[in-house]
């Protein structure tokens, strides 16, 4: 296990100290480690367990329960495509299908360049702009194939600094 960078260690210690009991920081610590490692690998889970004084199983209980903690490798941009009823009404499945085909991945898969992971998501709270998706904390509204192409191109070009999901 390689040691964590000092800044990250400091950040983790701050997260744990900021809450009444270390357990409360479990999700925050896992988010921080997820940002560092890209996803929650076993090593990250062991780090989190050490920092929080919890067992890896307890953290696994949480990490696998939640939606936005990834226990499998993901791309740099995780695309959460809302598939709830309002988006469905606006042909979300076609959008999703289009995304998967464009990137050449199955649902939950990561594109070959390691940039994109496509995931269906529960309602992301943007129903008035359906169909919609969420990429690293940013909403993309009223999707059309053209808009998706534009978004992907924009992200690929790296013009946008990734706003990682915290």
């Amino acid at each position: 296990m390689s040691p964590l960078p000092t800044e990250l260690e400091t950040e983790l210690a701050r997260l744990v100290a900021a809450v009444p009991r270390p357990r409360e920081a479990a999700v925050d610590v896992m988010y921080a480690l997820q940002r560092h490692y890209g996803y929650l690998c076993d090593e990250a889970m062991h780090c989190a367990a050490r920092v929080l004084g919890m067992t890896t199983l307890e953290l696994e209980s949480l990490a696998t329960f939640y939606d936005y903690l990834y226990r499998r490798p993901v791309g740099r941009y995780v695309i959460h495509v809302c598939d709830s009823v309002v988006c469905w009404m606006f042909h979300q499945d076609s959008i999703f299908d289009y995304l998967c085909r464009t990137l050449g991945v199955p649902p939950g898969g990561t594109s070959e360049d390691g940039l994109f992971t496509v995931l269906p998501a529960a309602c992301i709270g943007n129903c008035h702009n359906a169909p919609t998706m969420l990429i690293n904390g940013r909403f993309y509204d009223r999707l059309t194939p053209e808009r998706i192409d534009a978004v992907l191109a924009e992200l690929r070009a790296g013009t946008e600094e990734p706003v990682r999901c915290k």
Binding site: T64, Y70, R71, R72, G108, T117, A121
Partner: peptide, 9 residues
């Protein structure tokens, strides 16, 4: 088999 670590919702 169910993938316990799956990222699919």
């Amino acid at each position: 088999p169910v993938d316990v670590k799956s990222i699919l919702p």
